[in-house]
Design a protein around this nucleic acid. Structure first.
Lengths: 244, 244
DNA sequence: AAGTGGTCTAGACCACCGA
DNA sequence: CGGTGGTCTAGACCACTTA
């Protein structure tokens, strides 16, 4: 079992458990910790790094919850044998594309304020008839159109002059002091209707991936309901599940 | 702020933090804790229940991670304003269908052992050429066909005489002492090819939801690679994302 | 029997938020 | 300023696995 040169910086503002988790993750990424390798036990590791056991546990636990490590009582902690996908969390499509080196462009198709449709009011927990902003956008990358994005937000959240052509929606919301915290998604497939197909450069009936998402901020307030249609050949959703 | 009649049973084998989390969740489900309500603060709650603060924190934290509660430093803990979807985790399609009151039937289309295709060997972390079981199944519900399921497993995991017509694959694996712990999924959409369309009662090119999944057990060993094709009108994937 | 993770305690100090 | 959650400590006992 490899003894790894972990250490912590107690003068850093980064929490100790997070520093340790980062170092373990880096060791896995670099291959220093190979798939199947066992970690030193919690007590020994805590001792070696001069940490308390709960702090060490918190570090390991965070990686277990992301599926990088598995733990068994009486046995130990091991690196999962295989590359676990690590989906970006609660990020916007725009940010994801930029992060992956692409150059997304956005066309605003629709940007209007009016009474919420019943389904949207229900989903956002608003009184029926409350004003919401309805947003329609076409998101393209270098290769061409990727997705048609529809969003509904409480009217006070989005400035009327927001520049959605050059900035992602979540970026605009962040600038408004809205901190997204929870999202609930439903993913399905559909045949594209005529309008969507036209926007995406597909034949009507061609398969599209549909993502419906509701978002809440850090005060628990519903911030957005979204229905996005993605070209099937340009987009996949990744996720990792861990049993408790 | 409502003061709820939580209590714990110290003689129970159920962990204290879990008992508390269950009671908070039940209060949310029943409406006793309404969306937007604030919880008592951690210290007061711990005191009232006769628990230490870390234990109380663990209870709350587990619900925060599932998206039911949001916390802000200096402010407090609140119930999220809206119904968060709570997807079943790492369960099999068969079990999910049974749980939702349906009666799935399964037809085994293919059940053979042979050298792993390169892609499968790579995904499962096996040496090229290792024997794997290739499984093809058609899953139907009362209404008709729902999904075509393809699975690849290391050959020693699946008994040759496994009864996959009447039991789900994960059920069979559980009976073998395999405890699934981590899964990594990719979800996409496709137009059905001729064979898949035929099996599902669709026209070729009709939209299907494609789920590719790799599973690991509690020792970190790769247990299965799956590629499932679902009728678009009969299946959606639900997930909840929480920002740390 | 020895070693592992799972749970729990009773404190402590700090950072952040809102009045 | 007081109240909140965020982090951390130094122990303890237990359940489970493996040998």
């Amino acid at each position: 079992m490899p003894v790894l040169p972990f250490d912590v910086d107690r003068s850093s503002p980064v929490p100790l458990y997070f520093q340790v988790a980062q170092q373990i993750e880096a060791a896995i990424d670099s291959g220093t910790l190979a798939p199947g390798d066992r970690l030193e036990n919690e007590v020994a590791l805590a001792d070696r790094l001069g940490l308390s056991r709960p702090t060490m546990r918190q570090a390991i636990q965070s990686l277990v919850e992301r599926g990088l490590l598995v733990r068994r009582r009486g046995v130990g902690t091991q690196v999962v044998q295989g590359r676990v996908r690590r989906p970006v969390r609660l990020s916007s499509l725009h940010d994801d594309l930029v992060r992956s080196g692409q150059h997304p462009t956005t066309t605003v198709l629709l940007h209007e304020t009016g009474p919420a449709p019943a389904e949207v009011a229900l989903t956002l927990g608003l009184a029926p008839g409350t004003d919401v902003v309805t947003l329609g956008r076409l998101r393209c990358v270098d290769d061409g159109p990727l997705a048609v994005l529809h969003n509904w937000l409480p009217a006070d959240l989005l400035p009327a002059d927001a520049d959605l052509t050059h900035h992602g929606l979540y970026e605009v919301l962040r600038a408004q002091g809205v901190h997204l915290r929870v999202a609930s998604q439903q993913i399905s497939a559909e045949g594209a209707d005529a309008e969507t197909a036209g926007r995406l450069g597909l034949d009507p009936g061609a398969p599209v991936l549909v993502v419906e998402r509701t978002c809440w901020d850090d005060s628990g307030r519903a911030v957005e309901f979204a229905r996005h249609h993605y070209r099937a050949d340009g987009y996949t959703v990744e996720m990792t599940l861990v049993d408790p």
